[in-house]
């Protein structure tokens, strides 16, 4: 395998550099067209307005707000995060990228890019969401922590699924279907953690949820790193 033989050479140049290069390439391409960013923002804001509009002026209890927030976040992620690999297929640049970088570094670069997209979405959506839902702010530090850890896990699982479906037919519908079962534990923990944050609980009270989020992200990203070579070389 060519990837094995060149691994020692790139190890000296540093995996951070190569993954960073993939990330910068994607970020610059994204900033040029803003395709994923626009699609994600318009999708998230539309969904949010639809939810808020259908509910009318009533304020919801924290469990309902937490559940709705993650439903919107999940679908906004599904609408845009598969772009990282689709773009390579559509522009026919996947083969060149395969030659230029090691699989693991491609994965890490793409993961970082998706994570940045998701965090941008969090920053845009969550304040708007809380304002429109008239939710009490509760424990903002805990909310930020749950959103950050949840986004890492979300990006970790969706990036490998995006690589899986890049060559399949009907991939738009497949992406959500494949990603959702993988994300079930994450969504359960994230919704529960967000609910606690909105209720104003301390970070210690949400320890179980935070531990679950951290371990989910670590397990998913580790497994993706191990599997990515097989997915990417297909």
């Amino acid at each position: 395998m060519t990837t094995k033989s060149c691994s020692s050479a790139t190890a000296s140049s540093g995996w951070v550099g190569e993954a960073g290069a993939v990330f910068w390439k994607d970020l610059r391409a994204e900033l040029r067209s803003r395709y994923a960013l626009n699609a994600m923002a318009i999708f998230a804001v539309t969904t949010l307005v639809v939810v808020s509009f259908s509910l009318g002026p009533q304020a919801l209890p924290p469990p309902a707000v937490a559940a709705l927030l993650w439903v919107v976040l999940f679908f906004a992620a599904i609408a845009s995060l598969s772009r990282v690999f689709l773009r390579e297929e559509e522009a026919h640049t996947a083969a060149a990228l395969r030659l230029a970088a090691e699989p693991v570094h491609v994965y890490l670069g793409k993961l970082l890019f998706n994570l940045v997209l998701l965090l941008a979405l969090d920053v845009l959506l969550v304040p708007l969401f809380l304002a429109l839902m008239q939710a009490r702010s509760g424990n903002l530090w805990l909310l930020a922590l749950v959103l950050l850890l949840g986004s890492v896990g979300l990006a970790g699982a969706t990036t490998i699924v995006a690589a899986l479906i890049a060559k399949a037919a009907a991939r738009g519908a497949l992406f959500g279907g494949l990603a959702f079962p993988l994300l079930l534990p994450l969504l359960l923990a994230a919704v529960s953690g967000t609910r606690r944050a909105l209720e104003g609980a301390s970070c210690a009270a949400a320890g179980a949820e935070l531990r679950l989020l951290v371990s989910f992200a670590v397990v998913m990203i580790t497994a993706s790193i191990l599997l990515f070579e097989y997915v990417w070389s297909e």
């Binding site: 899986l164 399949a168 949820e209 679950l212 989910f216 599997l227 097989y230 997915v231 297909e234």
Partner: peptide, 24 residues
Amino acid sequence: ALSASYAILAVLPMLFLIFVLPRV
């Protein structure tokens, strides 16, 4: 290859749901 990868990947959330979630 791709369905094999998915089958392997899908084991991980199941581990969480079967062994971790009932404790939480």
